[in-house]
Design a protein around this nucleic acid. Structure first.
Lengths: 198, 198
DNA sequence: TATAAAACATACAGGTCTGTAGCGTGTCAA
DNA sequence: TTGACACGCTACAGACCTGTATGTTTTATA
C-alpha cells in the first residue's frame, strides 16, 4: 500500500522487491520454477525470508510476478519493433521474426517462460497458468492486428498460423542449425501470407 | 536381467512393471512429472513401493521409461499412417497433420509429453532430457525423409519448417478454435511446400 | 529527536519427497 | 521339500519444502 503522501515524490521503486524478483526470475528461468525453492531465492538475492513473504504473499504469487515481468519485457521489445514499422505490416513481421529468431538461436536460450511454466503447472486455475494464458491471447490478438493489414482473405486464420510458427520456434531450439532460425521462420511466414492472398 | 532359461518360454510380459509404468504415465502426463510423487504412483497402481524400486532403480529412471513409452506410442501411430502412403509423400504429410490436428484439438490434450517434461528438467544431461532430445532428432529425421520425396529445392530447410509447425501445434492448443487445427496446419504446410518449389 | 515501517537473522513447525530396511507370504522349479 | 525370487506391507531415515514466529537493527519520516 505504501500510502505515499501527496507532497513526497514517492520512492516508486522498491529496491528490495526488485532484487528479489530479478533473482527469482533468473533462477526460475534457468533451472525451472519447481526446482527452485524460496530458500535459494532468499540466499542468492541476499535478503531476509520475511522480506520475500512481505512483498509476495506466497511462492505462487512470486511465480505469477515472474511471469508478468517476463510478459512486460516481451511486449516492450515487441512494441519497440512495432513503432518502427507503422506503415508496413510485412516489414514489421519480418522485424519480429528477426529478433525472435535471434533470441531463439542463443546458446543459452531455454524456451519461452510462459510455455515452460505452463508445462510445469498443468492444473487449470493456477495463478501462473492464468498469466501464461493471457500472454497467449495477447499474442494472437497482436498477430491478428498485423494480419488485418496484410490484405489476406482470412486474417484470423493467418494470425493462427503465425502464432503456431512463433510458438513452434520457442520449443524447437534443438532442430535449428546455428543462425538459420530467422530465415527459416521468415520464409515460412512469407509462404503462408502468399498462400492467404491467392 | 531376468536370466530366462533356454527351455522355459519366459513370461515375457511383466504384469507388475507394466501396471506401474501405465499408471505413472497417466499421472505424469495429466499432472506433471514433478507434481507426482512415487508414493502416489504406488498407491494408484496398487503395488508395493519395493516393487517400483526393483523395476525402476530411481524416479528418474521411471520418468525416462515414461518418455520412452510415449515415444514408442507416437512413432507407432506415425508408422501406421506412413504405411498407407508409401507412394505419395504429400498425402502422407496430410495424413500426419490429420491425426496430429485431431489429437491437439482434444479437450483434454495436455501437450507433447517430451516438450513438457523437457521444460520441467532444464538441466542438460538429465535422463529425461536425453529421451526428449532423441525424440526431436527423430522427428526432424523423418520429416527430412518426407521432404526429400517432395521435389523441393531445400528438403532440409523444409523439414525444419515442418518441425516448427508440428512442435508449434503441440503448444498452441490455446490459440485454436475447435476443429480448426488440422486445416490450419495443413494449409500452412502446403504453403511452405509450394514456396519451396518456386 | 521520536516513532513507525521495513529489513535482517534465526529458528522452527509441519508437511512431502525419494529411497531403504526388515519381515512375512505366495509361487514355481529343481 | 527346499531354495530362489518376486511381491506386499510397514516403518523410517534424511533431506527439502513452504510458511511463520520472534526478536533485533537499520532507515526514513514527521
Amino acid at each position: 500500500m505504501t500510502k505515499s503522501t501527496a507532497n513526497a515524490p514517492a520512492p516508486a521503486v522498491n529496491e528490495v522487491r526488485d532484487r528479489i524478483l530479478e533473482t527469482a526470475s533468473e533462477l526460475f528461468y534457468r533451472r525451472g520454477v519447481r526446482a527452485v525453492g524460496v530458500d535459494l531465492v532468499v540466499e542468492k538475492s541476499g535478503v531476509a525470508k520475511t522480506s520475500l513473504y512481505r512483498h509476495f504473499g506466497t511462492k505462487d504469487d512470486l511465480i505469477a510476478a515472474f511471469l508478468k515481468r517476463e510478459d512486460l519485457d516481451f511486449w516492450s521489445t515487441w512494441d519497440r519493433v512495432t513503432e518502427r514499422h507503422a506503415d508496413d505490416a510485412l516489414a514489421e513481421l519480418d522485424a519480429h521474426f528477426e529478433w525472435i529468431g535471434e533470441r531463439v538461436g542463443r546458446h543459452n536460450y531455454r524456451g519461452c517462460p510462459q510455455i515452460n511454466t505452463a508445462a510445469e503447472f498443468p492444473e487449470a486455475g493456477h495463478p501462473a497458468r492464468k498469466v501464461a494464458e493471457a500472454h497467449m491471447r495477447e499474442l494472437r490478438r497482436r498477430l491478428n492486428a498485423i494480419a488485418e493489414r496484410l490484405a489476406v482473405a482470412a486474417p484470423d486464420r493467418l494470425a493462427g498460423q503465425l502464432a503456431v510458427l512463433i510458438n513452434g520456434a520457442f520449443v524447437s531450439m534443438q532442430v535449428f542449425e546455428p543462425g538459420e532460425a530467422t530465415g527459416l521462420l521468415r520464409d515460412a511466414a512469407h509462404a503462408v501470407i502468399a498462400a492467404g492472398r491467392s
